[in-house]
């Protein structure tokens, strides 16, 4: 049977039929590894992140990588054209991906991308927002909660100042941006369930 991994971090949504599930999984792992490494590099450049304990750095990255990638690659979801571009550079219509059996999660990803795009964030705002997403003190397994909370607070403060400065007339913009965080958390959970079901299958 055909195995479909319609994640834009994959090279192609449909796996080669002659490959075993293990080989498909390994190919997928190879295709998203560079993006994960970039998230780690990004984290290292967040002031204060490297001062956290190594275990807390790993915990935050493990829990938040999907959310960071979702923000970073939101532009792969073309809302107007209803297409998704995979890292191979090939573009697929949402309809075609749905035809392969992908549905709910992709719809939610499109919705998120559209909402994020509507905020028209600058590159600087997007970077700082991504840092706030990554340094979330409520991830399970944090050892030194106080350090992570302090870093998160300082990042949120900096984001608030930046957003207010770039658009002083729109006080709700910062709130709208912070409200994207629970959306990302929901997407992360649904995505995890999807991965889990693939592994069980």
């Amino acid at each position: 049977k055909d195995i479909v991994l319609a994640c834009p971090m994959n090279m192609y949504p449909q796996a080669e039929p002659n490959k075993t599930p293990q080989e498909i999984w390994e190919d997928f792992s190879l295709s998203f590894t560079p993006a994960v490494r970039e998230v780690v590099e990004f984290a290292k450049h967040i002031p204060g992140f490297s001062a956290l304990s190594e275990n807390d750095q790993v915990t935050l990255l493990k829990a938040g990588t999907f959310e960071v990638l979702m923000v970073r690659f939101a532009s792969l979801f073309n809302v107007k054209e209803q297409t998704v571009t995979f890292i191979s550079g090939t573009t697929y219509s949402l309809e075609a991906l749905k035809g392969m059996g992908m549905g709910g999660l992709l719809d939610t990803m499109f919705e998120f991308s559209e909402k994020l795009k509507s905020l028209e964030l600058t590159a600087e705002e997007l970077g700082l927002f991504t840092a706030v997403v990554l340094v979330s003190a409520d991830r399970s397994g944090i050892e030194n909660l106080n350090s992570v909370e302090l870093l998160q607070e300082s990042l949120i403060k900096a984001l608030r100042a930046l957003v207010s400065k770039s658009n002083p007339c729109d006080a709700s913009r910062f709130t709208k941006l912070l409200l994207k965080m629970p959306d990302l958390r929901t997407l992360n959970n649904v995505h995890s369930e999807k991965l889990l079901s693939f592994r069980i299958d």
Partner: peptide, 27 residues
């Protein structure tokens, strides 16, 4: 299979990428 992130090998990739930084750090 209770932890999708571990199943993806994510922790291994993350730890190696973080350690890369430590290796590059000057003595």
């Amino acid at each position: 299979f209770s932890d999708p992130a571990s199943n993806l090998g994510l922790e291994d990739i993350i730890r190696k990428a973080l350690m890369g930084n430590l290796e590059e750090r000057p003595e």
